[in-house]
């Protein structure tokens, strides 16, 4: 019961999506539509589950006075602030003058872009420590990274400005990105896709069951 029903659900849903890809007609197109809508609804509930979990962990941390429990208060307060801003405005919560948009523009957006931007420093320091031209493969990696980086900034073309059009650093970068990079990317993409298709079939057919966890 605890394993059989989930296996049956996975199998039916997976098979319907596979069939509807090849036969987009009644009844498969109708079932495909239902399942897609259910998927979106479950997704919304899953984020609620995640949020409740976050609140549960944060409140436990506050109650038990664990290390840095004060920050959990900030997490909960800002969470509720965003929730209130998002729901008090109704359907028009995305309007230009709403509190939700203000919070998005002045907190969410700067914080998320700074979080990504800070990685520039860590990537630079990691590459300084890890990049060594020890062998042919490492040299190719280093060379490709170097040319792509220098070819994407104005100084790249400034250094090779005396060379004819088509032979400058930005052109070399373009060639690396269009040909060898695309070739490697395609090999990786095709490899991943073959693995994903075979794993999908294993999941749909019930051969792969590890995602269902234990018996409890």
């Amino acid at each position: 019961m605890r394993r059989e029903i989930p296996l049956l659900i996975t199998g039916i849903v997976g098979v319907v999506f596979v069939i509807s890809y090849f036969i987009p007609h009644f009844p498969f197109n109708m079932m495909d539509g239902w399942f897609s809508d259910w998927f979106s609804i479950i997704q919304a509930c899953a984020i609620v589950l995640g949020a409740l979990n976050l609140l549960l962990i944060s409140s436990q941390k506050i109650i038990r006075r664990k290390t840095d429990w004060g920050y959990s208060i900030v997490v909960m307060a800002t969470f509720f602030l965003m929730i209130i801003a998002g729901f008090s405005g109704g359907v028009e919560f995305r309007g230009p003058d709403t509190t939700f948009t203000w919070l998005y523009n002045f907190t969410f957006m700067p914080l998320s872009s700074t979080m990504y931007a800070i990685l520039a420093f860590f990537v630079a320091s990691a590459s300084y420590r890890a990049f060594r031209a020890r062998n042919a493969e490492a040299t190719l990696l280093l060379g490709a990274a170097f040319f792509v980086m220098i070819g994407r900034v104005p100084i790249g073309d400034l250094i090779t400005g005396f060379m004819p059009e088509g032979a400058r650093l930005s052109d070399l970068t373009g060639w690396i990105m269009d040909y060898p990079q695309t070739a490697g990317q395609r090999a990786i993409m095709i490899g991943i896709a073959l693995g994903l298709v075979s794993t999908s079939l294993r999941v749909i057919l019930g051969i792969e069951r590890s995602h269902l966890g234990g018996d409890s």
Partner: peptide
């Protein structure tokens, strides 16, 4: 060798995109 060039190019591209975000900030 091809895959190494790809990794290098992807690395360089990622660094530049992070740099562009840094410049934005």
């Amino acid at each position: 060798w091809t895959i190494m060039i790809t990794f290098g190019a992807m690395f360089g591209y990622t660094v530049m995109s992070r740099m562009s975000l840094l410049i934005g900030r």
